[in-house]
């Protein structure tokens, strides 16, 4: 489904990705974990063509998106849904309008069809009755759920989640994780999630990739990652101050 090969990216003198390679299978839910500021979001932004790599390629369903631009890239983006870190909801639109936005702009649907799909999507994320509120009037957790509804409304093949639970309390964190697994089962998308939620994330995803010093240090099922003898992985999972990972 998605093949990342030798991806490199620097910002000025700072090398953020120094050869990331990762294969993501169809309908798989994978989490990318790693240090804060370690390049996880940069990697995610490459997957949707928001950033161009210095070297390497990203093959999505057989097509190298790093060579694409303009309309070609827009064509690939139709396959994606993205849940941004802060939700990235449009301030000037209501919750209903935010969720309906991709349908109105990208699909030729009748008003009734749009209405039905938006209501269903809001039902899925437990936000029926909030349609007329503006993003500024709802909580952080609700924003994440609206963002999820908006990302899923076009039934994309691939959904990218950029830290979907950051800043939420433990109950909301579980609620969002459950929502992601439920919608993953329902829609059957391929999901790539950036996460810091250890150990919760072990119960959510099929595989975990650990990004360290610009490369994928280790990738495996949650069970394999837990059992890993790699000192870097062990220190990260334990959240220990002692070990090879230096706190900057």
């Amino acid at each position: 489904m998605i093949n990342i090969v030798g991806l490199q990216k620097s910002f000025g003198e700072q090398k953020v990705l120094s050869g990331v390679s990762l294969s993501i299978s169809d309908k798989e839910l994978i989490a990318i974990i790693g240090e804060s500021g370690g390049g996880k979001s940069v990697l995610l932004r490459h997957l949707i063509g928001l950033l161009k790599p210095d070297r390497g390629k990203i093959v999505v369903e057989g097509e190298d998106i790093t060579k694409m631009s303009g309309r070609e890239l827009d064509g690939i983006r139709q396959k994606f849904g993205v849940v941004f870190q802060g939700g990235a909801l449009f301030d000037s639109l209501t919750i209903y309008e935010n969720v309906a936005f991709p349908l109105k702009e990208k699909m030729k649907l009748s008003r009734r069809e749009i209405n039905e799909r938006v209501e269903d999507a809001l039902e899925d994320v437990g936000l029926r009755g909030m349609e007329d509120k503006y993003p500024a009037e709802i909580s952080g957790g609700m924003k994440k759920r609206v963002a999820l509804a908006r990302a899923l409304i076009t039934e994309p093949k691939i959904v990218l989640f950029d830290e979907p639970t950051t800043g939420l309390d433990p109950i909301l964190l579980h609620a969002i994780h459950k929502l992601i697994t439920d919608t993953h089962k329902k829609y059957g998308f391929t999901g790539v999630m950036i996460s810091h939620d250890i150990p919760e994330i072990f119960h959510v995803v099929d595989r975990i990739a650990f990004l360290y010093k610009g490369t994928i240090e280790v990738v495996g099922t949650p069970k394999e990652i837990r059992a890993s003898s790699d000192p870097v992985v062990r220190q990260f999972i334990k959240g220990s101050l002692r070990g090879p990972i230096e706190i900057s």
Binding site: A88, L89, F90, F101, K106
Partner: peptide, 18 residues
């Protein structure tokens, strides 16, 4: 500017909307 820093412009791009 606020749309840029709150990723709303990126959201538009990600939706394949210019």
């Amino acid at each position: 500017g606020i749309m840029r820093i709150s990723e709303q412009i990126d959201a538009l791009t990600a939706m394949a909307l210019n």
